[in-house]
Each structure stands twice: as C-alpha cells, then as structure tokens.
Design a protein around this nucleic acid. Structure first.
Lengths: 228, 228
DNA sequence: GCGAACCTACCGGGCGGTCGGTAGACTACT
DNA sequence: AGTAGTCTACCGACCGCCCGGTAGGTTCGC
C-alpha cells in the first residue's frame, strides 16, 4: 500500500513500470506540501500541480485526499519501525537501547522530517478507523520507550522517574527538532543528533547524589495513561 | 485587541460590561475548538454555534477568522510573558530561573493548553505580518532560555551543551505535554509539572563526573551519510 | 426613536471528487 | 503491411457542497 511496499513489490515481480516511480514521487511531493502548509490548507490541486498533473490526472494514482494522508502516515510509521524500533529491539542493555532509539529517531528527522512530522501533526485529518490504527502504533512506540525506562529503573540507574512521563518527554524533545532544525543552519545534523541524544540520556539517568532537593518523594508510582 | 486588552480597557473606561464577557467567551470557545480540530478544519459556523450565535451574529464581535486566530495567539503570548517570562526575569540565579521557566510554562499547559498550543501549531494560518510578529516573540522566548543556559555554562554547571539546542529541546519537552496530558488521567497536573521540571534540569546540568565522556556506547548510527 | 445585538438570506469562489473522453503505445489478427 | 482492438496515462469540464464574508433587516432595552 505504501510507496515502499510498492517499490518492494516491483522489485519482487519485475513488473518494473515507471508507474511506481510516479506514485512514489506523488507521495513524496504530497508529504512535503502537507508538511509545509498543513493537510487542510493543502488542496488536491496544489499536489497535482507540484507533480505536473491536473487534478483529474492525479486521481488516476490516488483514491482520495484522506487515503493519501493515511498512506503517508503509514509510510512514516514503517520508517520508524524499520529504522528505529527494530534496531533498538536488538540492543539488550537498556541504556544503550535508549541511546539507539533517540539517536536513530532524531537522525531520521534531521534527514527528512516531512512524513514523520505529518504523522504527529495531522492525525485529525484521518478517518476514525485509520486514526485508530496510527494512534495504536504510536502508543506501542511510547510503550517501548517507557519499558526501556522501566528496565533502567530496575537496574537502579533511574530513580523516581515515571516511565510514561519520561517517554513522552523524550519523544517531545525529539519530535520538536523538526520545528527548529534547518539543514543549512549553524549546526549540522550529526551534531544536533549527538546533542539531543546526550540531553535525553542525562535527563533520565540519576546523578550520583541527588543535590536537587525540593522534589516530593511520591515518585515510585508508575502511571498508565493516556491517549494520543 | 486581545481579550485581555479589552478586559483592561473595560476596567479603565468603565464602559460596556456585558460585551467584554461575551467577547472573552468567544475567544475562549474559539481557542478550544481550534485546539481540538485545528484552525483550517474549524469553520466560522462551528464557533458561532458553540457560543449560541449564527455566523452573521458572530461577525458583530469579530473582524474575520484570521484576526480571531491572531487575537488568540496574542493572548497566549501575553500569558507566557506575564506568567513565565516576567516572573523568571526576576530570578537571578540561573538554575533557579530555569526551574521557574520550565515549571511555570508546564503549569500553564496543564491548566489550559488551548491557546498556548494553538500558538505553536497554527502559525501558517496567520497573515505574513501577524506571523512575523508572533514568531519574533517566540524567538525572544527561546533566546531568553538560551541565555539562561549560557549563564549556567559560565558558572561551570553545564559543559558542552549548545544553548540553542538545549533551549529548543526543553521547549519541545514542555510543549509536548499538551499532546499527552489529560486532566483526568492517573497523574495530576502538579506531579507532571514536577516530573518534567526535574527532567529538564537534569537534562541540562552536569553530572558530577562525566562517566559518559567520549560517548563510549554506540548510538546505533554510523555518522556521516549524506542524502538528497 | 435609537443604537446595540442579533437574524435571515444570500454571494462568489474554491473545494474534493467524477465523468466522459482521447492520444498514443502496444498487441492481434488477417 | 494494414488495421482493429485494448490498455495506460492522462485532461477539460463539470457537480454539489460548504466556506468566509456581507447586505439589509428586526428585535429590544433604554
């Protein structure tokens, strides 16, 4: 269904049409425009013009605006699965695993933030069923991070941090990169990834002696929530 | 111009009391709906119905959809100025100042995230001049945080962290709260604020001896790989 | 009777989406 | 070799709907 799947299908079947390239180009263009202007502010005409087609011509390739959005989000979640979650799952040490997650996710965003950013910003544009699908996959991701934080806590490397709050906070830090990072800016992508990764780890790990009083002791309680 | 300004105006002039309440209610409703559905997906009719007016009746109070958005964002920036930046500016110790910023900003979001979230999510809905205004004020805020981090660095409490990256990352962590925090969840607002504040401080401060120096653990990413 | 606070009715326009084509490449049969 | 049929990749014209916004009242408290 996604551009990637189609590419894989073509490679497998040898049905090497240019059609799959065209379709991939459409998804890529649409993702870029959705990212820049937002889903609702983007018209089908905008996308058609960007790929050199009329609106009617574009409909030869897509089923509708919402399907297009869902396809892009599915592609983004696939990216996250393949390039962040799966590699991290193979790392057994929790701290190294957390570093892998943050570094790889941050790196994806500095490389091309379009699809991954749409993934979190345009959920309300989806049909309810599609939205449930995407939200479920996102929740799995946050749970994966929270489990890693819980493992760190069990090792004694983390004290008094709620894993869920920690996971959400790290995700927020990472996703926000797409709002301020510019490839042509002062820092290059590798530097940004390294900085953010260091911050994330240090946000979560214990400092030897807690010199930082003023923090109530009611922190051992894990809390399970929420939606979206 | 904003609801707040109008309230101030009313107090000053003693004029037209009920109208200002109505106008404030309209801004509040609009902010809530923009927050829930997004600016472009919200119609003037949605807002009118929410406050018990017809569309034409609503236009007695507002000048247009974009002005409404700008007014809400201006109100949100005023909130940030008055309840976060100004109080923090009076704190001289950089670490305490940073704690003030994070805690107060986080608290604003747990209390009512509508306007503050619109502030960052709907910038493209504004006219260029209005957008420039808001973006300028946002940049001032980030610079304020970055300056605080720079002061911490000069005290030796922070090593090797770029203040700009640090500031953006903290802001991302804070703003993201509005996406996952639910007032009726397991954690109450105070707990969330405390957790996030602790994470923010520890993300930024040096740990006594840097056991992590040189970045020994693999991050899972081979550096340097250009694309596009 | 006058202004504030609304309403009904309407407008132009852009939206997502559809329909009926058709140029051109390719195949099939004679 | 000619030609009829078929399929892919598109286009121009159009549809119904709803949008932001407005013109011109009407109601009602003073």
């Amino acid at each position: 269904m996604t551009a990637l799947d189609n590419a894989a299908l073509r490679a497998a079947t040898g049905a090497a049409d240019g059609e799959q390239d065209r379709r991939a180009e459409i998804y890529r263009s649409a993702a870029r425009i959705f990212h820049r202007k937002g889903y609702h502010a983007t018209s089908i005409n905008d996308i058609a013009a960007a790929v050199g087609l009329t609106k009617a011509g574009l409909y030869y390739y897509i089923k509708g605006k919402q399907d297009l959005l869902f396809a892009i989000m599915g592609f983004a979640m696939d990216q996250l699965d393949e390039q962040v979650i799966e590699p991290a799952r193979r790392v057994e040490d929790p701290q190294a695993r957390l570093e892998t997650i943050v570094a790889r996710h941050a790196r994806l965003i500095t490389q091309d933030s379009s699809a991954l950013t749409i993934l979190v910003n345009e959920l309300e544009g989806l049909l309810p069923d599609d939205r449930a699908d995407i939200i479920g996959r996102q929740r799995d991701y946050v749970d994966f991070i929270a489990d890693t934080l819980a493992a760190l806590r069990d090792e004694g490397k983390v004290l008094g941090l709620d894993p869920t709050v920690g996971a959400f906070s790290l995700v927020g830090m990472i996703l926000w990169i797409s709002r301020w990072y510019r490839a042509d800016g002062r820092l290059d992508g590798d530097e940004v990834v390294a900085e953010v990764t260091r911050m994330a780890i240090s946000a979560v790990l214990n400092r030897g002696e807690d010199s930082n009083a003023g923090n109530p002791a009611r922190t051992g309680q894990p809390a399970k929530e929420t939606r979206e």
